[in-house]
Nucleic acid binder design. Sequence first.
DNA 1: CCCATTTGTTATGCGGCTTTATGAAATGCT
DNA 2: AGCATTTCATAAAGCCGCATAACAAATGGG
Lengths: 393, 393
Amino acid sequence: MGFSHLSRPGESFSAAELTPSARAVFRSLVAGGPSTRPQIGEQLALSRPTMSASIGELERLGYVEKIGESQGSLGRKAALYRVGAGAGHVVAIDAGSTHVRLRVATLDHRLLHSRTYRLPTSHRLMNEEISRAVAEEFAAAATETEAGWGPLRAIGIALPSRVVGDGAERASTRQDELFTHFAPPAGPKLVLENNVNCAAVAENVYGVAQGRQDFAYIQIGLKLGMGLMLGGRLIRGRNGAAGEIGHLAYPFAPGHTPVAGEAETYLGTEALMQRVRDAWPEAPPPPPEDAGDLFARAEKDEVAAREQVERHAADIGALVASCVALVDPGLVVLGGGVGTSPLILPIVRKVANALSYAVSVETSSLGPDATVLGIEKLAVDRALDVVLAQPSP
Amino acid sequence: MGFSHLSRPGESFSAAELTPSARAVFRSLVAGGPSTRPQIGEQLALSRPTMSASIGELERLGYVEKIGESQGSLGRKAALYRVGAGAGHVVAIDAGSTHVRLRVATLDHRLLHSRTYRLPTSHRLMNEEISRAVAEEFAAAATETEAGWGPLRAIGIALPSRVVGDGAERASTRQDELFTHFAPPAGPKLVLENNVNCAAVAENVYGVAQGRQDFAYIQIGLKLGMGLMLGGRLIRGRNGAAGEIGHLAYPFAPGHTPVAGEAETYLGTEALMQRVRDAWPEAPPPPPEDAGDLFARAEKDEVAAREQVERHAADIGALVASCVALVDPGLVVLGGGVGTSPLILPIVRKVANALSYAVSVETSSLGPDATVLGIEKLAVDRALDVVLAQPSP
DNA sequence: CCCATTTGTTATGCGGCTTTATGAAATGCT
DNA sequence: AGCATTTCATAAAGCCGCATAACAAATGGG
């Protein structure tokens, strides 16, 4: 069999050579959670001897571990395996503008540790404060690292800004500000991703877009953003700017000259509230304090509030129609403070379908953890690439 | 080696079993044109014995054939191979609204036969006339089929309408009208694709978008359309409606209510000419006859014409900006009658970049054959799937 | 307690490939 | 012409990853 390269365990650490079926078995355990040998064998159509060899390889490296024996209405007990500590873990950080959320998890998404830090004030943009918070939270989590979690494979960070790969020009990106106070360790892979894209990934893994090959996640709140998944892959774009729907041509009509970023300004919460205040009748009920107030009163059937909300929903419907016209995702998931309001859903649905092709519109069901769960998934994917990397030559 | 299943040649026709390396060799010949054994061997990192075996398999099936010996500044001559007649051929048809173009080609894109039929009048939509023309052209081509071209593997047809796969609802599609007079033979695979998508494929293979992983082909003429290629794959959308930019929300501005399909109407050639006529000054030069006239006179620096063209170009720039904002393709190729005018290019470039992220804008360099070349490529791809299909169980 | 049933291990073989060795053909130098 | 050199093709041997087959071990039911 040629195990000579494994005779001194721990020596050839990163260059772990695995047989293809061992890789498949590991992937199955990561995706499907704890399973017995025959379960995996049947799922992957592998023979029992091959399973034996694969599990042997993985167990020797600590990538999997036996966690018991299981059931069998008849016959011998089957051994139950799961991803082992040797496979390591990941840290996922949602570096939001109002809070920093952190999760430490195994490659099969078992939560090892979790923290949340609320930033003192609401910052609109990536800045030093966030960088400092990330550094502190990461350091705090690192001290809690228990032995037995294995090596840290990847650090994923979700950012509220455009994110570009190493190749492209990153001048206009704010992503570098993250590192003013936070110095990531050298070993683990660093995974940066836009927070809206992360939310889309989370919807795809845990939410209403579960398993969908094609859909768009559209976030409507203070700012606008879209995460696109087409053909099962996240669409990032050449400059990491895919999904910047705030830059749709707007106003786009005869006699008007579009202004850069105006769609975001007009459809964002601030401009909405300004319009609401301007159009508010003189009569008794005073104009709403903020967007939350507006939607709450609209739900109570307060006429003026309702009218404003419905008009805004129609605008959003037009926005969604534009997205549908370009990529025809088949499903649009609405997220963000305004996007998740139950009032706007039927109107957006109606307008979008009237203006473009058939599209399902649903409201995001994931809570505030969506972003951190999405970046965790991406970090795990990256970690798997490393763990299961085949030797290059 | 186990060649028993090949002992009676021609018997196991469709279930040709090929080794993985033989498949790779065949693919290399298809993609790279005629090559010598050592060239392929080096490119695929295959040993000479493996090359020998692979070529042997392929030659026995007629999939490749020796077409000579070649070069060598020193040493023995190398045998030169190319895709053989046994691999078969494809028929590609551009069923346009003004003409039907047909090409018969081998899997390595050697042109075997070509015809063009100009429809008597300009039909806007898929209709019986086109179906009849397709049937006639296909039948005429079939009679010319020379022995030695091998089996017909696939028929590709580019349609000026939405195209959906077998699964989705095709009610609102006009694609079925194609078959009112044209009955395709049962054997070969049928490949249907939207004509704009085909043009995009052609740009990707032969044109200015050669080898690009991400770009958008935007056609501006009587109608508007976009072919999207992201991550090296054509984006078709859930209902085959991706790229229907004519359905962008328009007019999209405060106080306006968008109308379905209005972007196409407004930015299409007819509406443009109507506006031009309405705005034309009373003075001597009479308003232009048609779009061609308008652009010709604009190029001659006729002030009124120039003004109109520039305003239209700015509108198109806004349209392009919307596409860029959503998918950030990095490159936009302009096609179609209006899109290829050299006058609009710099303005579109400027407006698109001002409104959204960095994007290259280029003019299509492929002539009227673009669509048929694109569908030919897609038909060949499909044919390869068939020829190189591995036995399922 | 024996037996059917399921799980895990060991032995053997096969397909697809590589490497090594050997033979054949074309070229330049003497 | 004869020869070394270079390149291409074939033959033989062996590796790697997997499957099949046969056997050993564990478990519950008559």
